[in-house]
Design a protein around this nucleic acid. Structure first.
Length: 592
RNA sequence: GCGCCUGUAGCUCAACUGGAUAGAGCAACAGCCUUCUAAGCCGUAGGUUGCAGGUUCAAGUCCUGCCAGGCGCACCA
């Protein structure tokens, strides 16, 4: 509908160009917006304001000229000039209700489009280190990434949802060693658990199952375990600190490796990794988040991708050596300092893996790559983009979305989260407490870069204050009406309903229908801008329009034609609510 | 100190990427249940968009400088 009105404007401008009123070469894009104010009609364009300068006319004058040249159309009942020179279009009522039939025909296809034209897009999200369960911060990234991916798929992009598994590196060694030490505790070895080890209960669980499976295979005496290990951090009675927690844990890792041998160490390492990764997979799946690809960081070392990436940078002269390490000259691409890619001990850094990983992404042919990262990683954006530029990959093809943290509240009380003690609030706890639907909806209710307050009490409450219930309730209400219809021994006569749409004459009916017609544009906008909150807010508004309508007009009335017309409108609303909620990963219940 | 993000009604947030009189929901006040779920609906009130300049027909939105909050500045991942 928008396109058709836009083409009217374009043809008016073209005829003005022919007459020499407007220069032939003037550049313009016709913008046509939905109006906020009903007195401004249904659609408005600022074209006369934008072209006033190149036409050498004042905006209102130009608007009049354009208006005079507008071709006749059955859609538009009138076009008028208003304010500083806006062109306001009023649609006739038949075209306003046409959307109802379209929705009823297209069902769950309504709102889908092919503007993505099958372009390959990757959305990488969550990608939390497999060193412990997902917490509520990851939940926001999960809900955001999954919804963006759904939106892109709905608009015709070829989407790959990917999780980057950090299955290499020091943190994983700390996990493996933590598991081993907990295992040793089960065997009554007298040890003090390191302050920098993973403290969570889940580590003990992994140790327990390791013990059940392997018996005392990994048993070593305490003095060997702590042999030559620097003292751990400790604080004495006067508050004086001594020792070094980092050196302490590194010493323990070293001893674990030598005492256990490569093979046994690897068994422990994999036990920790697999157990936690399985848990993460299961957690995300339960949250309605599915991936096409779980990409292993370790695989990049195993297949020499990292070496290859470094060599390629070397070849193009972006690498230099200093103090025995290899540095990438990222300052040449706007970074504030150069970065090490291979350490003086010959080990490549995490950043080197990241370069190889991003090279790999673009080698797979993605035309657009979206990384969803926690806001604390924003420092990495510049250097990763620098690496892409150095590899002669267009860094604009990479879009990094930084998701801010969510702060949990119970009413007005802030919920403290401490990672230290291992007693953080996990995503699973959140899901159990408020339910998947509320969690998914709340997480995407805010723009991604907005700090967010997540009120647990509100998410659980069954009232209109809670936007999830509010939207779901609208859907359930319509289902209930249909149930009631059946109880009355009647059926919805689709054909009669669609033929009788002109009986829908109230403002509320027109408002609701207008809202429904907006849905495809909303999906498109939310998808292209990668902003799910646009959809969430829209569904809230749609639900509000429906509740208003429901309260004002009774549907199950004796007048067959009007009843079927109203049912058609409501069923269209139900369909759109259903389609929108599906994209958000939220259920559309038949009853509540 | 440098960099990124944020600052909009008492609170939580929008505002179609520069458009018309800045909008919702809570909370406050005032109404609506012999009616398909009152898990809802309808009003009223609430603003110098952190501050100060600038750009233009037009600025919450763009540029500059301040102020406040968050996050980051490793041969860790």
């Amino acid at each position: 509908m928008k396109e058709q009105v836009t083409s009217l404007i374009i043809s008016a401008i073209q005829s003005l160009q022919k007459e020499g009123v407007l220069p032939d070469d003037c550049k313009y894009t016709v913008r046509l917006d939905r109006t906020k104010d009903k007195s401004h009609g249904d659609l408005a364009s600022n074209i006369a304001l934008a072209l006033a300068k190149s036409a050498g006319k004042n905006p209102r004058q130009l608007a009049q000229l354009i208006s005079d040249k507008l071709p006749e159309s059955s859609l538009v009942s009138k076009a008028e000039i208003a304010g500083p020179g806006f062109l306001n279009f009023f649609l006739n009522s038949a075209s306003q209700f046409a959307v109802i039939e379209k929705i009823i025909q297209e069902k769950n296809q309504f709102g889908l489009s092919d503007i993505g034209k099958g372009k390959k897009v990757q959305v990488e999200f969550v990608s939390a280190n497999p060193t412990g369960p997902l917490h509520v911060g990851h939940g926001r990234g999960a809900a955001y990434g999954a919804t963006v991916a759904n939106l892109l798929a709905a608009t015709g992009f070829d989407v790959c949802r990917e999780y980057y598994v950090n299955d290499a590196g020091r943190q994983m060694n700390i996990l493996a060693t933590s598991v081993w030490l907990r295992y040793l505790e089960l065997l009554k070895v007298d040890i003090t658990f390191p302050s920098n080890g993973y403290q969570g209960e889940y580590v003990k669980d992994i140790a327990q199952s390791m013990h059940e499976k392997m018996g005392d295979t990994f048993l070593k005496p305490a003095d060997a375990i702590f042999n030559q290990v620097p003292a751990d951090l400790s604080v004495d009675a006067s508050g004086q600190e001594s020792g070094d927690k980092e050196a302490h844990i590194d010493g323990l890792i070293e001893n674990a490796r030598t005492l256990l041998g490569q093979e046994n160490y690897q068994i422990l390492f994999n036990a920790g990794l697999n157990s936690i990764l399985d848990d993460i997979r299961e957690d995300l799946k339960g949250f309605g988040v599915e991936y096409q690809e779980w990409f292993s960081e370790r695989s990049l070392a195993d297949d020499d991708s990292i070496d290859l990436a470094v060599k390629q940078l070397q070849k193009s002269g972006h690498i230099y050596e200093q103090n025995g390490a290899l540095w990438f000259r990222s300052t040449a691409f706007g970074d504030d300092k150069d970065r090490v890619v291979v350490r003086d001990n010959g080990q490549s850094t995490y950043f080197a893996s990241d370069i190889a990983y991003h090279m790999n992404k673009f080698n797979r042919g993605f035309e657009k790559v979206i990384n969803v990262w926690g806001a604390d990683h924003h420092g990495y954006v510049t250097r990763v983009k620098a690496a892409l530029s150095a590899l002669e990959i267009d860094s604009d093809k990479l879009e990094v979305r930084l998701v801010q943290f969510a702060i949990l509240y119970r009413g007005t009380e802030r919920v403290q989260m401490s990672t230290r003690s291992g007693s953080f609030v996990t995503l699973r706890q959140l899901r159990e407490e408020v339910g998947n639907d509320a969690a998914r909806f709340f997480y995407v209710l805010r723009k991604s870069e907005q700090h967010m307050d997540f009120d647990l009490d509100l998410a659980k409450s069954q009232s209109k204050d809670n936007p999830v219930y509010y939207v779901q309730y609208a859907h359930a209400r319509i289902c209930r009406v249909l149930e009631k219809l059946t109880e009355q021994g009647k059926v919805w006569d689709t054909e009669q309903g669609l033929k009788s749409l002109e009986l829908l004459i109230t403002d509320r009916e027109r408002d609701l229908s207008k809202k429904l017609a907006q849905y495809p544009e909303i999906i498109e906008k939310a998808a292209l801008q990668h902003e799910p909150h646009i959809l969430a807010h829209y569904l809230k508004d749609l639900a509000a329009d429906f509740h208003t309508y429901y309260n004002a007009s009774k549907m199950l009335i004796d007048d067959d034609a009007l009843r079927n017309a109203r049912l058609s409108l409501s069923i269209a609303a139900k369909q759109v609510l259903n389609n929108g909620l599906l994209l958000l990963g939220v259920s559309a219940p038949d009853s509540m």
